[in-house]
Write a protein that binds this DNA or RNA. Structure first.
Lengths: 220, 220, 220, 220
DNA sequence: AATGAATGAGAATTCATTCAT
DNA sequence: AATGAATGAATTCTCATTCAT
């Protein structure tokens, strides 16, 4: 999946989510308020438990206005996710430069981890929600689309660094790295702040111990 | 009131999520059917989306019968979780013997991981559901009670093996181990079966590399 | 309505209320327990709010047994009322002797009032319930049947004492007496005990002042 | 938020049984229709037997609309009662002038009784219902709040007229007057119209005979 | 565009009554 | 006779969505 396709899809998604593209500034602000309110409520009490009336109320607007911008409840969730994904993409793009895996592993993971922490800080609620949702429900697809993109990029980078690794193994390696990182990052955020660095250094230890033999197989 | 009835009442007190403990075999079978149906539905479409009528229908019983045994929908979830927890406890108890951490780490994790895989296989749906639910909702407490017990046991065992480790650090160490294990075990179950062993050995590698310096600090 | 008819009706009512006449002593005790429980519950929370299961439970029996004696919930109410009515009848019969209105009014009302107080004391709950029910519901008929009987007897007695009073006026006079008595008796029972005699003597004052000119019209 | 909206909010706070104060004329009409329907049904078949769907149906609206204005069934009853109480208050206020007990007793009771009859005529159903309900249930408090107010006013007036009467006795005197009046008024309304005046004059006779010695104790 | 009233299908829960043991 | 499990219609209430103003 190349860069172009991603943009195309993003545009298409937007057209499906919105009933009407807000034309005036006031309308854009209203949409943003609705998305903020929805993101909070989804994170607080879950998608199903969140009523569209509650979203409108917290966004200081009326239910009628809400439905002027979104055709139904699901579209609101999709828009929230899309907005989050966009920020995710933007942030990641700055980290996953072409020389990412050509730095020391320690440096690479330092920059990746701190970028992810930054992102989580601003959208922690919805992220936790999506992780929960991805376990079971219909939104798994939405939630993991961004993961695909991130995967594809990391795959390219890793392929450049360890060209001798077969494709299938490389993909699996990435999923292992990715899953472990997500989980321990999450743990680090629920833990008291003075323990956070312990968790993060454990994460780094694990990642490096796992990747090192792959990067330098002769050393085993 | 004869001896039998007295025992029944005692049981009723202890099982708070039951409205009435079924006293006839017919009733016990029905309760089991209800719990099976509920476990499936919760796993498939989530707690909120599962209607009590749907549970009754899949259990081949009437909504009235369901409510004769359970006072409300939440109690059904609690009973499902309790049943799962009991099996979890039973299985774990056989693994976490007093010499658990005095075996080689490789052996210890081999037995633990295979026990967990067995358990997951029989209740995969509800486990995935609980993991999702624990991220946000009101059921976190229920879901994590069993974790507390497992933690407490592991804590004892680890304290015996590494007495010089301060309590707080030991607790954090366990959470890191625990979280990583859960996540990668889960991953191993979603992955094609021929890749499963790769994931599990990665898990072992990470756990051992993380724990080794703690077990033998002088060797660093 | 003469004495015979009353007994016939009473018997017929019993046959309608009971599904099966309890043959054994155990059965009779069970029926009594059910009626006691029902009477309490009807008085406490009303007829509609009382469930048949709750009656069975408070009577220490099973719902199945309850329905072996009563065909439906309404029959239980009818039986409760019938039992109350019977006691009402028995008590009244001892007071309303042929010379009732040939005593002084003061003596007559003294004995009537104290008899009613005795009855109320034993079935206060159900009486209050019937008064409430009679205001609106389908049970008005049941509840006021006994009133008819009492009326008929008082009518006879008053006709003997004041033969010159037209029938229609006599009936109305009785309703006025009756209503006032019921109400103030009820008030006397809700009032602190040291105020009770004040209420009762007010009642007597009113009744006598109302009846005196009717008894001795020439004195006006 | 302009002035109008602020006033609306203030009203909402004060009217606790409304979920939302209707802001459009359409809404106000609908609320009135709902209260009318509810008042009729409560009077006809009682509170418990009245379903919210039946109320909506008779009010020619949907169940959803009903619940947009009232949070639950009890709130509808409370609103019905409140509306009745307000009219009760208004009417009474015109009668209980400062010189009420300084008129002749005959004049005083004439005006009071005719005022009450007027009120009863317009809300007879709900009044009868409240009297029934007050005998047993949870709504006693609601129903008798207005009585407290009426009592307090009458107490003031009576204290002015008979200052030598101790407080406790005066309160009891009022309850006796009040109870008797309510009951016989009710009776007068159930009786054929040509008998109505007989009941009312009996009421007056009783009240006057009871009060006279209290007003002029020396004459005894 | 904005507001909020209107709608009704659907969800949880109760309870009178029947039936199997 | 006794027990208690089984049944399902009926009830209260919610909420996504549409419509009138």
């Amino acid at each position: 999946m190349d860069q172009e396709q991603i943009q195309t899809e993003a545009a298409e998604v937007q057209e499906t989510h919105f009933r009407r593209q807000p034309q005036q500034i006031r309308g854009q602000q209203r949409v943003a308020a609705i998305l903020d309110a929805a993101e909070q409520l989804f994170a607080e009490i879950g998608y199903q438990a969140t009523s569209t009336n509650a979203i409108a109320q917290r966004a200081n607007t009326s239910i009628g206005s809400l439905y002027q911008f979104f055709p139904n409840k699901k579209a609101i969730l999709q828009a929230v996710v899309a907005r989050y994904h966009q920020q995710y993409r933007d942030l990641i793009q700055n980290i996953l430069t072409d020389d990412f895996f050509f730095q020391s592993l320690s440096d690479a993971f330092d920059s990746l981890i701190s970028a992810l922490i930054t992102l989580h800080a601003s959208h922690g609620g919805i992220r936790a929600f999506l992780i929960g949702a991805s376990a079971s429900s219909e939104f798994a697809t939405e939630a993991q689309q961004i993961h695909q993109e991130l995967f594809a990029r990391l795959d390219d980078l890793l392929a450049a660094r360890v060209p001798q690794l077969p494709n299938a193994e490389r993909a699996l390696t990435l999923r292992i790295l990715y899953t472990t990182t997500q989980t321990l990052l999450e743990l680090s955020e629920t833990v008291p702040s003075h323990e956070q660095s312990t968790v993060l250094s454990a994460l780094k230890t694990m990642l490096i111990s796992y990747l090192s033999p792959i990067f330098s197989p002769e050393s085993i």
